[in-house]
Design a protein around this nucleic acid. Structure first.
Length: 783
DNA sequence: TTAGGTTTGG
């Protein structure tokens, strides 16, 4: 009798789902071949090559020797056998070592006896360091469940003897197929950047399903249907731009296009697609291979994706929702309730306030799960999202307090019969079009970390003060003033009186902010020279990049290295076009200081390198060398980087002085390296970051445009920080939403109090009167 | 098996 055993779990062609590691599939009598899946091809021992994809290949031979089951140092089970190709006994190379790892090793050790016929598919070929001897192969095969190997054993005894030599275990090597080389009917390993995905949802069959569309630098797309009964074994994709590695995905042709589908042994790793983020795989596998080479692949894909994939997406904060649109929300679940059979209520918040009144889904208090006190505290910040149909089951299973990303929420403007003002409704409609669904984010997710930090910073008492400015009862409560001023003694003047008066004068006014410019708040940040009074745009990073490239073409001058006041270090990069970098560390008392106290000057650095250095050192000054001195770069580039801020000098008003002037600051008892002081020493007229905005103010009598020219006082946010700080941008947006809530009629806008002054600007023909807001600060309970 | 990307009802 011939018995055929198939060791499985991850055999790619196995049709059975039983998770038993060893399964008796068939007992065949008098038959010499197992009906192997048609896509498998037999590989001759003589033709083995390292680095090829053997996912669809098998080798067959007789077990001539087996060793006792042992454990490797890391606890992995290890079983080694020698297999001889019985069809080619006269061949020079007819034996090979097969190293079996993990659960498969344990299972094989129980079953395999010498003389049995052994078939393995999905192995890895590893070259041995020593030369071959006596018919032994100079490769060995590595086999494991993780590698997707499958083993077939014929238990019919045959006998041969063979010697064997020790072999060295080498980490397995995978081969990855680019998306433009996929062939129907194969099982491959691949990398890709997520272009589209549906978070896992419960399919109509027995499994979870997740749809993932990948692209890679071949610019070919591949849509994969991934199924698994275990949610954890589907890739943990959180956003478009994430990078995935799939092992053992089956390729099929569907509607004239290649399609990926899970097959036995499918495994995935997911990586954050952000350049510079740690390359840490998200996986449920206990065991996975991940080495320097893989790290490099991920980093390369990140760079490719950065310029080839739009990851702008539709992520929005509640403060930024627009009616009649769809958006993705990262939020925390604070309440949930069953509404009816086909819909379920989720109450969530993200710390920001929706500028529109939002609907409240009526549910009975007893049906609402969540912390009552918190729900009350958050009653004006949390929003109700009604999820339908296929999303209900998943929504029900969510735990209060968990962090979610809800994809493609529909914002619907609606007005009930008994309300004059329309409100916003949030629906997660049934189905999964456009990736509609709910994803559970782990606490380790960087977006969750950021959100948690933000939620903790939200003062719930303050947000209750905003109650008067929000949703339900708009008209009655909007008599309130939301801006504080310094000059409480002045009484308010009507706008008509102001526009009819001559300039210059100062007034206290009470008005509504009908609109403001720019609507994109980051565009309000400019650079101002207090000497020549000029305003300019903040240069973008490309401009800086170009200047850096230009200056890197000249090598640092070694004669300028290591002077009395700085120490220098130089090195060359490994890139194709070698680049020399010099860093000059400014000393204090002839000593180097801690990096966080040190000012450095750098020659030949890239944008990224300089940015990294600013994280570590107190100040960074990009320089280049001339024949006899170091000097600043073109003043279109920042002359100084400190913390998150790039400091610029005025081209008109600056007269750069020798870098050596910095040594006088370095000699101070405790050098503070203040930008103003550095600028002065270097002859730079420091440009100040300012907010420039135009406010259109109205009262019952007239309307006027007043300019806001503000460094920090009005918003209590430094203009210099806003471009690099998301929290502050968020805070500023919320402030503007409070002062000028979008989507409201004039009558529904809040009243503001502020100070304005009028002034004359001489035109060619006549004087023009302008107005500027001054000495005004947004009240703390608004911010 | 399930889905096979392309939104809108409650």
């Amino acid at each position: 009798m011939l018995m055929v055993l198939v060791l499985k779990v991850s055999a790619p062609w196995a049709s059975d789902k039983v998770a038993m590691p060893v399964q008796l599939l068939k007992i065949i009598e008098g038959q010499s071949e197992i009906p192997l899946p048609s896509h498998l091809q037999k590989e001759n021992l003589e033709h083995l090559q390292e680095g090829c994809d053997h996912t669809n290949k098998y080798i067959q031979g007789v077990v001539t020797l087996s060793y006792p089951l042992t454990k490797l140092r890391d606890g992995t089970d290890f079983f080694k056998i020698v297999v001889q190709d019985s069809d080619n006994l006269r061949s020079q190379i007819n034996s090979i070592n097969v190293l079996i790892y993990g659960k498969m090793a344990e299972d094989c050790a129980k079953i395999i006896c010498q003389g049995e016929t052994f078939i393995v598919a999905g192995f890895k070929v590893i070259k041995l360091p020593a030369a071959r001897e006596g018919g032994r192969h100079d490769f060995h095969l590595e086999v494991s469940e993780e590698a997707g190997s499958a083993i077939y054993i014929y238990t019919k005894p045959k006998t041969t003897a063979a010697s064997e030599t020790a072999s060295v275990s080498v980490a397995p090597k995978y081969v990855y197929t680019p998306l433009n080389h996929l062939k129907d009917g194969t099982v491959v390993n691949l990398y890709g950047v997520v272009k589209f995905f549906k978070p896992p949802y419960i399919s109509k069959g027995t499994d979870y399903c997740s749809i993932v569309t990948l692209v890679d630098p071949s610019n070919v797309k591949l849509t994969c249907s991934l199924f698994s009964g275990n949610l954890d074994s589907l890739p943990k994709i959180y956003k478009v731009g994430d990078i995935v590695r799939f092992h053992r995905i089956k390729i099929r042709e569907y509607n004239g296009q290649m399609q990926g589908i899970t097959s036995g042994g499918f495994a995935s790793l997911t990586f954050d697609g952000t350049i510079g983020a740690p390359v840490v795989p998200r996986t449920s596998s206990r065991v996975y291979t991940f080495m320097d080479e893989e790290q490099k692949t991920v980093e390369e894909l990140r760079i490719w994706a950065a310029s080839n994939i739009s990851i702008s997406g539709s992520a929005t904060k509640l403060s930024g929702v627009q009616p009649m649109l769809f958006f993705d929300l990262t939020c925390q679940l604070v309440g949930k309730a069953k509404v009816d059979g086909s819909s379920f209520l989720l109450k969530v918040w993200d710390g920001t306030k929706c500028p529109y009144p939002t609907w409240k889904v009526p549910v009975e208090a007893k049906d609402l799960e969540g912390e009552k006190v918190l729900l009350h505290q958050l009653r004006n910040l949390a929003v109700d999202i009604l999820v339908y149909d296929n999303h209900v089951q998943l929504a029900e299973s969510l735990k209060i307090g968990s962090f979610l990303r809800i994809y493609s929420i529909h914002v619907k403007q609606a007005s009930a019969d008994n309300e004059d003002v329309s409100h916003m409704e949030f629906h997660l409609h049934g189905g999964t079009c456009y990736g509609r669904g709910i994803g559970l984010l782990p606490e380790s997710n960087p977006d969750v970390k950021e959100l948690k930090e933000f939620l903790e910073s939200v003062n719930l008492t303050d947000s209750q003060n905003m109650e008067s400015m929000c949703s339900m009862d708009i008209d009655s409560t909007f008599g309130n003033v939301t801006v504080l001023t310094d000059h409480q003694d002045l009484s308010a003047t009507e706008l008509k009186t102001i526009t009819n008066s001559s300039a210059p004068r100062q007034y206290r006014i009470r008005a509504k902010l009908r609109t403001y410019k720019p609507q994109k708040l980051h565009q309000s940040v400019k650079l101002h020279c207090s000497k020549c009074n000029s305003l300019q745009e903040v240069p973008d990073r490309d401009e800086f990049d170009v200047i850096l490239h230009g200056s890197a073409s000249a090598a640092p001058n070694p004669e300028l290295h290591n002077t009395s006041w700085y120490e220098s270090v130089t090195w060359s990069t490994q890139e194709q076009k070698q680049r020399e970098i010099a860093i000059h560390f400014v000393k204090h008392d002839e000593m180097l200081q801690h990096p966080e106290d040190t000012l450095i000057m750098i020659e030949g650095g890239t944008l990224k390198e300089i940015w990294k250095l600013t994280k570590r050192f107190k100040c960074v000054i990009p320089v280049r060398s001339t024949e006899d001195d170091l000097e600043l770069l073109d003043l279109s580039a920042p002359f100084l980087l400190k913390g998150n801020v790039k400091y610029y000098g005025c081209k008109q008003c600056s007269t750069p002085k020798p870098m050596k002037n910095l040594s006088s600051i370095a000699a101070e008892q405790q050098p503070s390296w203040e930008p103003t002081e550095i600028a002065q020493a270097l002859g730079i007229e420091l440009l100040q970051y300012v907010f420039i905005m135009k406010f259109t103010l109205v009262d019952e009598t007239a309307s006027l445009n007043a300019y806001l020219f503000d460094h920090e006082k009005f918003f209590q946010i430094p203009a210099s920080e806003i471009l690099t700080n998301n929290f502050l941008q968020e805070k500023m947006q919320m402030t503007m939403n409070t002062l000028c809530p979008p989507g409201r009629k004039l009558g529904e806008l809040p009243w503001l109090e502020c100070f304005i002054k009028s002034y004359n600007v001489r035109g060619a023909m006549e004087n023009q009167v302008y107005y500027q807001i001054f000495d005004t600060t947004v009240a703390e309970d608004v911010v």
